[in-house]
Design a protein around this nucleic acid. Structure first.
Lengths: 240, 240
DNA sequence: TTACATACATATTGATTGGTATGTAAATAG
DNA sequence: CTATTTACATACCAATCAATATGTATGTAA
């Protein structure tokens, strides 16, 4: 449980205060996100988070006075991670049907992963708290601006109407969120691959006009062209 | 809070045991579903459910020994309600673009409503409990069969390939589930209308061949052709 | 009417929750 | 080195949770 981290601290006995704070907070945030994605908001307690992080509840409440503070920190960290992931492959214009399919896979790599589900767990779990909810709304609207604008620039070469592209991007995110919900239902890899292809088809249809033929892969496909499109919650092999 | 139900019991002093049981259980299930949709699984306690239903926790645990039993009853009731809703408008073949748009609205009327979110709250909230999770999986797969099969029969007249129609139906459900998630983000009615239109457009293309133009409504639409497509969680005016 | 079962309410349980109070070790400033 | 702050652990708290134990009212079969 706390073996890996414990060895790491033992190997570096002389750390500065800011280094200790940064490391402990990072470990707590990561542990909280991991638990949110695996067991959900309702069952993620402060004691579980502390145990998963390899610290005590005292340390947790030292860095994050309330549980909500830690949740907000998880949101902050997730948006940082996402913007980082997007910046890596976010270069050059999107060309043709293959480029759109690549974009869909890219979005699924980010928003379809179990780690990202922690964000929705917080959004859904804290929706009755007006203060937290308000912060989340503005948090996400700002984060969305950083994601949508680069996309619009890359896809503008294909279609002239920017408003149309924005709508399509919104829909793609919606579909990917819906697909991520299906991970709770023990679906196989082909299911996700099939619907990602369908979504890419959807974007191509709306961006480049109707294709000669729909060209959606058949219901039973023998080879998996995108093996990284999986990501069931049961697949993770934690050591706890 | 318990005024309505209280008066009802006072007005009918002589009820049979089976009638009392049926009514109390129904009231508890409805109260549980309402709370799940509004405040979520984490904050839905047995005491809140009992208070919302106008009974005591003793009555709750008399009819449903454990909280999970009540949750399963909510699932049972929801599938009954859904199959009922589907049976009402589930007659005659789907004709043309307008028919598909009608079908999308119909699905949104069922799966997009806040009441249905209670089902997902249970699925997500109890995903660590293997026994409950197993029951939910088979519960839903059976329920899905009752929904998909009639759909396939109605749409088969348009397109010959049944496998293709099944894939599209799957995709529609995914998108609608993703769209229902967006209700937590304070989106307006135009947002939902816009994306439902895009989904219907996409389905039309795949089911009846390419249309002349995609014909997506503009980003800012002044009139709302489908006023029933709203349904934010904040819109409900409970008296508690 | 009597005997019993069912439907509830009241009161209370032990376990668990998020959070606090306080002590201790480590880092940093003077 | 000394003083003080910071980082963290231990112990504990009031509140709340689901669930139980028990009492009472009500319907039902004899």
């Amino acid at each position: 449980m706390y073996v890996t981290w414990g060895m790491k601290t033992a190997s570096s006995p002389k750390r500065s205060q800011i280094a200790r704070t940064a490391e402990t907070q990072a470990v707590l945030i990561s542990a909280a996100a991991r638990l949110l994605a695996t067991v959900g908001f309702a069952k993620t307690t402060t004691q579980m988070i502390a145990a998963e992080a390899g610290v005590t509840t005292g340390a947790l409440h030292h860095h994050f006075p309330t549980k909500d503070d830690l949740m907000m920190a998880v949101l902050d960290q997730s948006s940082i991670t996402i913007e980082e992931k997007l910046r890596v492959e976010n270069a050059g214009p999107i060309s043709g049907k293959a480029g759109i399919r690549e974009m869909v896979d890219h979005l699924w790599q980010i928003y379809g992963q179990p780690e990202y589900w922690a964000v929705w767990e917080i959004i859904i779990g804290t929706r009755t708290d007006p203060e937290v909810h308000r912060r989340i709304i503005e948090h996400r609207s700002q984060s969305m601006a950083n994601i949508v604008l680069p996309w619009l620039e890359r896809v503008e070469t294909l279609n002239g109407s920017a408003g149309q592209s924005l709508d399509i991007f919104e829909f793609m995110l919606i579909a990917i969120r819906g697909l991520s919900l299906e991970r709770f239902m023990d679906k196989d890899a082909a299911y996700f691959e099939r619907n990602l292809a369908m979504l890419a088809d959807f974007a191509s249809f709306h961006l480049q006009g109707p294709a000669p033929q729909p060209a959606v892969p058949p219901h039973t496909n023998k080879k998996r062209p995108h093996p990284h499109t999986t990501g069931n919650f049961e697949d993770n092999d934690d050591n706890h």
